[in-house]
Design a protein around this nucleic acid. Structure first.
Lengths: 148, 148
DNA sequence: AATAATAGTTATACTTTTGTAACCATTATA
DNA sequence: TATAATGGTTACAAAAGTATAACTATTATT
């Protein structure tokens, strides 16, 4: 383990984070009434198809009561639905509805549009590089940070 | 401009963001009384040395009243200090104190330590890759998303 | 069968963030 | 000089996130 590299990684991630936050959550507010938390839940469901309430909490390091509040709101808006687990009747599984999947796709497009304006400043090579590098960061972080 | 690439980038960044959030802000809470917002402000100051109140707001897409609140708290803790601009007496410049710089360094170490446990699961090559890729993402995002 | 553990909800209190509007001081403009 | 624009603060309200405890229902353990 190279100690220097780890510190560099931490430093890079700390710089990336605040830049992302506003760029990603702002379109969600202007184009829909999805809160940042709701957006993350939808993203997790998009990746995993179905998750129990507890799994969502683990996925996002979110306390269970908060998951309940967010999912309640998403159900109210028709984005997700509950279903009882067939094996364990304590478990409630959450999955995207068609509307939820569609609207999340639209939200991603809105974020793309928003980013696109900024990305126009880059060369084709830089965009290519960012595409590859962001995928590498994503895949590696998911492999070590995702708890589900 | 390759449309596919832009959408891939948006998708990757949206996946990265929730993973980072908790991993980066949790150590700040356990090791100090710096709020996430305060951490971002310190990070901006670390990169730019000195910023006016408005610049901090632009940097982090933060409303000005919120900047005031956060900076007030950081001053109270002795992490940053105000100084009047010599050319424009409306402007108040904020810069890190020695204590602020030190404690921010320590905070970064705490985050590194926290990450290190997880990074132990990776191969040396993956760490190397993450180090390079996260730097690329950081540099490119700063070049297009940072407003200061 | 009794007890402990797990999944989820409800309730509550608190912190942080976000959004406005009003306000003062200073600088720029007409 | 009068007016507009900018930088920053104050005050207030509302939304979102965080944390904890108490509770029900179900499953696992003994």
């Amino acid at each position: 383990m190279n100690k220097l590299n780890v510190d560099v990684i931490a430093e890079n991630l700390m710089s990336i984070h605040p830049l992302l936050y506003k760029s990603l959550t702002r379109p969600a507010k202007t184009n829909s009434n999805i809160t940042p938390g709701g957006m993350f839940v939808l993203g997790s469901l998009k990746r995993h198809q179905t998750l129990s309430m507890s799994d969502i909490g683990k996925c996002l390091s979110m306390p269970k009561p908060h998951v309940t509040v967010i999912v309640d709101k998403l159900i109210e808006e028709g984005y997700v639905e509950r279903s009882n687990d067939v094996n364990d009747r304590r478990i409630i599984n959450i999955s995207l509805t068609k509307k939820g999947a569609n609207d999340f796709e639209e939200l991603k497009l809105a974020i793309s549009e928003n980013l696109k304006e900024k990305l126009l400043l880059l060369t084709f090579e830089e965009i290519e590089q960012l595409s590859v590098a962001s995928k590498q960061v994503k895949d590696i972080l998911i492999s070590i940070l995702s708890k589900v």
